[in-house]
Amino acid sequence: MRDYLFPPLILPLFLLLIVVPLFLVLFIFTGTTVFQVVFGVDGQTAMTIFFFILVGSFINIPVYEKEGVVYETRYRIFGLMYAVRRKQKMVIAVNLGGCVFPSILAVKAMMDLFRHLPPDAWLIVFLLSTAIIYSFARPVPSVGIVVPMLVPPLSAAFFGFLVLILFGKPLILLPKLAFSTGVLSALFGADILHLKDLDKIGSGVVSIGGAGTFDGIFLTGIFAVVFSVLFI
């Protein structure tokens, strides 16, 4: 049977023209559907929001600079060892599409929730999710702060489900609760509370939400809503 199975002759071209567009279409469809569910907007408005996030993912806004790590290069010349040290600065920035826009949307969802849910209920979900994300997040040199992808959205959806049951609120609020707490807990638990660990990453530009639409902050909100539907 193995003799009759073979990959496309031009595998990279196949991936570029078939697989990547399919994943992109699926991702856009999921993202716009989430915006429709959470904010009650129509398809055109949801697509506009997604477009602004996509464009914003290319824009990093510098916030402040700090001294980075010291690099030492050693040279051996005529039997003598010379060491050249240079210090590189670290620029802390926020990504417009991966951090700023999702955070604004999360705050909007949070304010909408307060008309139906006590603020302390929202705060419980946020604090629990932030604690879980913070415990899993780790600084990786030359990469950034990393956290297992499914931990933030699952935490927001699960704790949101428990809190709604505890407070006797309808589960129809869960997608909005999961999105708002998921985005903001990922921002605080993985990024803001780990700013003290930036020296372990290295130098250069460290952007919060720097991977744009595919960053953990934005994806946490998207997948938190997807997982929340499973609890309803």
Rank of each mutant, 00 (worst) to 15 (best):
R76L: 15
V146Y: 03
M90P: 07
R2D: 11
A109N: 08
V140E: 11
M81C: 12
V147I: 13
V146W: 07
G97N: 08
F6M: 14
P141Q: 05
F27S: 11
K196F: 04
G189Y: 01
L154V: 08
G97F: 02
A186Q: 04
L80Q: 10
K200G: 13
R85A: 09
T30W: 01
G168M: 12
M110P: 00
S142R: 14
F39W: 09
P175N: 08
M90N: 10
L54V: 12
R138G: 08
D112S: 11
K87H: 09
G68C: 06
I132T: 01
G68F: 05
K196R: 13
L150A: 14
V84G: 04
A211I: 04
L9S: 14
V146F: 08
S103F: 07
P170C: 14
S135I: 10
Y75P: 06
I59N: 09
F126Q: 04
I133K: 01
L173R: 03
K169S: 04
L26I: 07
S228L: 10
P148S: 00
I192L: 14
G182H: 02
G216M: 03
A157S: 08
F126Y: 11
I10C: 13
L105A: 09
A137N: 07
P148I: 02
R115S: 06
Q36P: 04
S207A: 12
F27K: 01
T30R: 02
L193G: 07
P148N: 02
G212Q: 00
V19Y: 00
L193R: 06
I10T: 15
V70E: 15
P62F: 01
L173Y: 02
F52A: 11
I92W: 06
R85Q: 15
V63P: 03
Y4E: 12
N60P: 14
D3N: 08
S203Q: 09
P175E: 11
I192C: 07
L198C: 10
E67Y: 13
I201M: 06
F214Y: 07
F78N: 15
F188R: 01
L5F: 12
A121D: 05
I53C: 06
A131F: 03
V205C: 11
F126S: 00
S155Q: 05
T73W: 01
P170V: 11
L105S: 08
V69E: 13
L13K: 10
G182I: 04
S103H: 05
V143A: 13
T48A: 11
V140I: 14
D197I: 06
G40P: 03
P12S: 15
V183W: 00
P141E: 06
M47N: 12
P12A: 15
F35V: 05
A186S: 12
S155T: 07
L17V: 14
L117E: 04
L173A: 02
L174N: 01
K196W: 02
L198E: 04
Y64K: 11
V63M: 12
S180I: 06
F218L: 08
L195M: 13
D191W: 03
F136D: 07
S142D: 15
T45D: 09
P152V: 05
R76C: 12
G202Y: 03
L173C: 05
F231P: 00
G40A: 09
V125R: 02
A157D: 03
G56D: 04
F126P: 00
V94A: 15
F114Y: 15
L162T: 02
A224Q: 05
V163M: 07
Q44L: 13
L13I: 15
F159T: 00
T48H: 10
I208F: 08
F101L: 04
P7S: 02
I61S: 11
V143K: 05
